[in-house]
Design a protein around this nucleic acid. Structure first.
Lengths: 219, 219
DNA sequence: CCTTGCAGGATTGTTGACAATCTGCAGATG
DNA sequence: CATCTGCAGATTGTCAACAATCCTGCAAGG
C-alpha cells in the first residue's frame, strides 16, 4: 500500500449533479430571470440529456428552495419579495452566528487565521476598487466562516442560503456607499471570534445583516 | 359564485410526495434500519409505482440527508455516529435558539401561549406515565417553537433536523431518569421566551441539547 | 500464498414514448 | 354583448425497456 495517497479518487459526478450545478449557477447569477419558467423539454434539449436526469436536477433545486414547482404547471425560478429577503437574512444570522459560536468554543487558531485572510482579501479588492471582486470576497468570507465551524449540517443549510443571497446581490452590486464599511463589518465579526466574545459576535453578525437588509429592502 | 367556500381545494399530492412522506416516516421511526440498502426496484414494486417517481422520492431524502447515495451502488439509510449526533444537536441549537430569539423580538403573546400549551401537554403525558406520548409531545414542543418564529427557512431546516432526531430517539425511548426533568427543561425554554430574556433562552436551549447529547453519546 | 483476469448477477443510470392535466382561445348561446 | 362550453396546444407526470456500471466469486498464473 502507498503510505500517502498520490491519486485522488476519480470523481465522476452524476449527470444530474452536473446539471444541478449549472442550473444553480445560472439562477444565482441571474442568467435565468426570477419568475421565469423552466421548461423541462427545452432544458433537456439544451443539456443534451433526456428528461430523467434533468428532472432529478430540477427537483433538487426545488428542495433547495431556488425553484418553485406548480403541479402540472411547470417550474418557475423563485422570486424573492421583501419578506423573503428578510427571512433569508434572518436564517443567515441564525446559521452564521451559530457557526461563529462554534469556532469560539473550538478555540481554533486556524479558523481565525483563515477569517483574517478572507477579510484581507476584501480589503485588497476594496483598495483596488474592484467591486465585483470585493463582492466575491465578501461571499467567500461567509463561506469560510461557516466551513470553519466544521458542521456539515450548518454548511449544507448555508450553501442554500448563499445561493439565494447571490441572487439578491446580482441586483444590487456595489450599493455600499463606502467599500471600507463593508470590510469593517466583516473585520468586526472576525475579531469578535478571535477575541472569543460571543455576545459581540452575535451583535456584529446581526448588524451586518441589518445593514445588508437596509440596502436591499427600502421599507 | 358561492360566498363561502364549502369545498376545500382538492389536494392531489404528487406521487413522489406521497412516497417521500411514507419513506421518511419509515426511516424516522426505525422501520427501516440505519445502514440498510434501499432497492429501487423492490421499493417501486412495494409502492406499486414505476421507478421514476420512486427515484424522485429517494432523491429528495438524499438531499434531506436521511439517505446516502453511492453512485452505481445504491441507496443506504444514513447511520448516525457520535460525531453526527453531536452535529445534529449543534444545528438544532442554532435553529431553535434563533427561532426563540425571533419570537422574543416579535413579542408574540400567541406564540408564548402555544408554547405553554405544548409543555402542558408534556406535563400531562409525564404525569400519566405515557412515555411514548411524552416523546411525541416533546418533539411537538420543538416544532411549535420553530413554527412560531414564522420563518419558512428555519422551518424547512428544522424539519430535516427533527427527522434525524426522531431516528435517534427511536433507539432511546424513555431514557430520561425523571420525566419531570424533561418537562422542566422545556418549561425553562418557554418561560425564557415569555420573559423576553434572550441570554437565558440560549442557555436553556444549549443545556437542553447537552442533556440529550449526554444521554445519546456516552463519550 | 497472493495477485490478476474474467464471467455472472444485480443494481443503478438513462432513454423515448405514452397518458393525464392544465391554460388559452374560438365559437356557441342566452 | 357577456358568459359559458368545448377543443387545441403545450406541459408535466408516468412508465417499461435498454445500456452502463459495479460487486462477487472463482480459477489460473506467478
Amino acid at each position: 500500500m502507498a503510505a500517502a495517497e498520490p491519486f485522488q479518487r476519480v470523481n465522476r459526478e452524476s449527470t444530474a449533479g452536473l446539471i444541478t450545478r449549472q442550473l444553480r449557477e445560472a439562477i444565482m447569477y441571474g442568467r435565468i430571470a426570477p419568475g421565469a419558467q423552466l421548461s423541462e423539454a427545452a432544458l433537456a434539449a439544451q443539456f443534451g440529456v433526456s428528461r430523467g436526469p434533468l428532472r432529478e436536477a430540477t427537483q433538487r433545486l426545488v428542495q433547495e428552495g431556488l425553484v418553485r414547482a406548480e403541479p402540472n404547471r411547470g417550474l418557475f425560478v423563485k422570486e424573492l419579495d421583501a419578506a423573503g429577503i428578510r427571512d433569508l437574512y434572518a436564517a443567515r444570522i441564525a446559521v452564521e452566528a451559530a457557526a461563529g459560536r462554534m469556532i469560539i468554543r473550538g478555540h481554533s487558531a486556524e479558523a481565525v487565521a483563515k477569517l483574517r485572510t478572507a477579510y484581507d482579501a476584501m480589503q485588497d479588492a476594496a483598495e483596488r476598487g474592484e467591486l465585483a471582486e470585493l463582492s466575491d470576497a465578501d461571499l467567500h468570507f461567509h463561506e469560510v466562516l461557516v466551513d470553519s465551524a466544521g458542521s456539515p449540517r450548518l454548511q449544507r443549510m448555508h450553501k442554500t442560503l448563499m445561493a439565494e443571497t447571490r441572487m439578491c446581490l446580482t441586483a444590487l452590486q456595489g450599493t455600499y456607499q463606502d467599500p471600507e464599511d463593508q470590510v469593517a463589518e466583516h473585520r468586526r465579526i472576525a475579531e469578535a471570534i478571535a477575541a472569543g466574545d460571543a455576545d459581540e459576535l452575535v451583535e456584529a453578525v446581526e448588524l451586518h445583516m441589518q445593514e445588508a437588509l437596509d440596502r436591499l429592502v427600502p421599507g
